[in-house]
Design a protein around this nucleic acid. Sequence first.
DNA 1: AAATTTATGGCACAGCATGACAGATGACAA
DNA 2: TTGTCATCTGTCATGCTGTGCCATAAATTT
Lengths: 205, 205
Amino acid sequence: MGLRERKKEKTRLAILDAALDLFLEQGYETTTVEQIAGSVEISARTFFRYFTSKEHVVLWFHDHSEEVVTEALQRRPEDEPPFQSLLHALRVMLSEFNDATPEETERFLKMQRLIENNPALAGKSVARGVETERRMAVEVARRQGLDPAVHQLPHLVVAYAMATVRVGFECPRPKVTGMGEMFERVDAALMLAERSFRPGWDLAG
Amino acid sequence: MGLRERKKEKTRLAILDAALDLFLEQGYETTTVEQIAGSVEISARTFFRYFTSKEHVVLWFHDHSEEVVTEALQRRPEDEPPFQSLLHALRVMLSEFNDATPEETERFLKMQRLIENNPALAGKSVARGVETERRMAVEVARRQGLDPAVHQLPHLVVAYAMATVRVGFECPRPKVTGMGEMFERVDAALMLAERSFRPGWDLAG
DNA sequence: AAATTTATGGCACAGCATGACAGATGACAA
DNA sequence: TTGTCATCTGTCATGCTGTGCCATAAATTT
């Protein structure tokens, strides 16, 4: 990895940390991009070369999560019931979070806290999650040999799986102190889901 | 109803129709608020007194839907299994759409077509739907005597119900010609949901 | 060291959204 | 009808987000 890329990565993280701290201190909407840029000594124009928008900073973790979860899904055997594959993939994503460095963990918790306390951001976060959902639905449909434009089942299966983790993340309103606590919550939601469905409900035909 | 209110309603609908047609003709993002305002002879400032934002025009139907569905939920007996109550309420909402005037139907289909062909709008629509979801989750939690801040089940039940109709609406990608066709799709999704869960999965304890 | 690719900053600009104020218009009572 | 009051509307000013463009600076390659 060259100097250039290392430098870019450093700037990206500097922006990220500065922005998150500013958001938490004085609120998301009242913090301007210019302020963020100023606090890391770059121009506002450059900010938008690292993050496509102001909200992209807060939803940044989605990018990584989507990558991890889709890869994990790909690794599951094709003949496994799709909902089970999805739950597996989602658990892989969660465990990846657990392996994160302290800095990464801190960032994630800050984003989570921001989203929790800001309905507008919560909405954006869900919308971003649904993007991932659509992509996974295509993959699940392919595995089942169904046309996603005609059959609703694949999309429905993915939607339920994603809704489960979303609820798991959202639900513990009162103070999310640490990563472990949060994962217990999400895992509780996943287990709740596991015993809620009829066997074979997610299979075509 | 006085002249004043009638006039307001007329303006609101004029804005709505003009905006939807412009969006469909030249695209959502390329249409400016000023253009919309101009085509109904009002100032841009006034536009924002009728709709809180440009996207509010496209997501307008959500306001009515939320009202209908929450009222319908309230009418269900408190001891009914919550998921069943939700499906009932959602079906009431759908049937209300069926009773709509031709103009209302046309507007709704336009909005639907816009959302279908614009990922950004689709995201906003989902975000709006989740707002409704949260409110209903509070009500369902109350009915079950659970604290929504602690227990995930109520939120999960509502999330699944809402995800079902969302998938029902989204799924028929290729040409949504009429209202009836759309409702068949959504109803198909609801029936799919009905036979996917274990009996009693949505009950506390 | 020169040539090439890529990142950055500054500038201009369009568009969305909001606050403030003054004038127009409907509501209502005398 | 007229006058008063509440409400709606347009105009103006303003702040902020996000993008295109171009010149400059930095890193990479040869």
